[in-house]
Design a protein around this nucleic acid. Structure first.
Length: 420
DNA sequence: TCTGGGGTCCTAGGACCC
DNA sequence: TCTGGGGTCCTAGGACCC
């Protein structure tokens, strides 16, 4: 009984390298939107001491002086590369859970009993590398939490094959002994403090406590973690793609926004994008939240954050309904006199697209809901937005600063790589 | 000067019901 | 005048993840 965790090495940085072989061995960092902070680093950049999440302005000088290469984030490209990797993985076993853009869990229980899982891992790794150019690590263990531990062990010991199989109790114990408790999946900053105070410093310490006591003192969540460290399987694979529960579209602004006239079209853009995502998932939603907030880093300026949730009479995925609700939600939370730094839309309460609720009474704001109509708009906008809604900001998707983006190598005909 | 975006799960407490 | 106890559902917020 085992799960495998496949984890792409420095994913965004590796993507940038696929079509730029000249960047081999060169430190690479990828920045968040607005070129705000560092969200990915190649091994070389990590060695330079560039921390994850650090604001770019703090390390810029040092990094460029040492001939580092920097990229603005290019999520269209990374998303496409991710889909290619996941597609390959889905060819190996029937049950795959795509956990994040750069990680997937594989259920290996369907394989024959005498199958050599370690060799299988090496095979997967070499195929993914050959077909996509992306290097992956593969951790194999009896459950999800331990497969995460296996990945950490590959990093810690610099395992040359990048594959590790924790099968015997002795191997597991050895790995746990070397894992500080804050590296355990599900143990964050708060819990680390509490656990350390209680004398629990390593994953092995945590594995040796009584799960019932942990539940009483902490939570069921941590109890499950403890049980998994002991080898029990508490977390199953979730390979149901329709199980998504919410869709969020939000951005920080490149420049602060303080008037409603500017804010409205920006938020409308978020709503349009959220509705597109919802239709792409073939779902409808019946609850929409709008939020705005000032920058929490700007302590000497007045702070305000507001969220308004709008309930819909019947589920919809029509952009016009979502725009109408967004407008209704934005007005009560907007207060003038503040410099807003971020806003967003959250869609909740999903149902299947085919569900159509009949209204008992005809409501004056009755939903516009026209699936066919929206389908045509989506088709026209597949590659580039051609049709806008009147309330949108047609110039830019949001006021965002981004200057160092690589080409959309794999998704745009005009940006294909050239061989000279 | 400059600090991401998109998710999940759990819990406490309020509203409401009988 | 006196004013219960037990339950469910919902929401906001916290903690965590990549």
């Amino acid at each position: 009984m085992a799960f495998a965790l496949v984890d792409c090495e420095s994913f965004y940085a590796s993507c940038e390298r696929v079509f730029r072989p000249d960047l081999k061995n060169i430190p690479i960092v990828v920045l968040s939107n607005n070129d705000g902070c560092v969200i990915a680093r190649s091994t070389e950049a990590k060695k330079m001491g560039i921390a994850m999440g650090i604001p770019w302005f703090k390390v810029r000088e040092l990094f460029l002086k040492q001939n580092g290469q920097v990229f603005s984030s290019n999520f269209t490209f990374y998303g496409d590369m991710s889909a290619r990797v996941m597609n390959i993985l889905e060819g190996f076993v029937p049950r795959v859970e795509i956990y994040s853009i750069d990680e997937a869990f594989l259920d290996l229980d369907s394989l024959k009993e005498n199958y050599n899982l370690y060799d299988f891992g090496c095979h997967i790794r070499s195929i993914v590398r050959q077909w996509t150019g992306i290097p992956v690590r593969i951790g194999i263990a009896p459950n999800k939490t331990l497969s995460k531990i296996a990945i950490n062990e590959i990093k810690r010991t610099n395992q040359p094959t990048s594959v590790m199989y924790l099968s015997t109790e002795k191997q597991i114990e050895e790995a746990l002994k070397h894992t500080p408790v804050h590296k355990v999946w599900g143990v964050g900053r708060r819990l680390t403090n509490h656990l350390n105070n209680a004398g629990i410093l390593t994953a092995l310490d945590l594995a040796n406590v009584n799960p019932r006591n942990i539940r009483k003192q902490f939570s069921v969540v941590l109890e499950r973690t403890v049980r998994e460290l002991k080898g029990e399987r508490c977390l199953d694979l979730d390979d149901d793609i329709s199980s998504k529960k919410q869709i969020v579209v939000s951005r920080s602004f490149g420049e602060r926004v303080s008037d409603l006239k500017t804010l409205k079209p920006i938020v409308s853009n978020f709503a349009v994008r959220a509705a597109e995502k919802l239709r792409h998932e073939r779902r409808k939603c019946s609850q929409i939240s709008v939020f705005v907030r000032t920058s929490p880093f700007n302590q000497n300026k007045p702070q305000h954050s507001g969220i308004k949730t709008i309930e819909l009479f019947s589920p919809t995925n029509d952009t016009r309904d979502i725009l109408a609700a967004t407008k209704k939600g934005l007005l009560p939370i907007f207060k003038s006199g503040y410099d807003y730094a971020k806003a967003g839309i959250i869609l909740n309460r999903f149902s299947d697209e085919t569900v159509r609720q009949q209204l008992l009474f005809k409501d004056p704001d009755s939903p516009k809901e026209n699936t066919e109509f929206m389908r045509y708009i989506d088709q026209m906008n597949t590659y580039e937005t051609q049709v806008y809604f009147a309330s949108q900001n047609t110039k830019k998707w949001s006021p965002m600063k981004q200057n160092m983006t690589s080409p959309k190598y794999t998704t745009n005909w005009y940006q294909l790589p050239r061989v000279n």
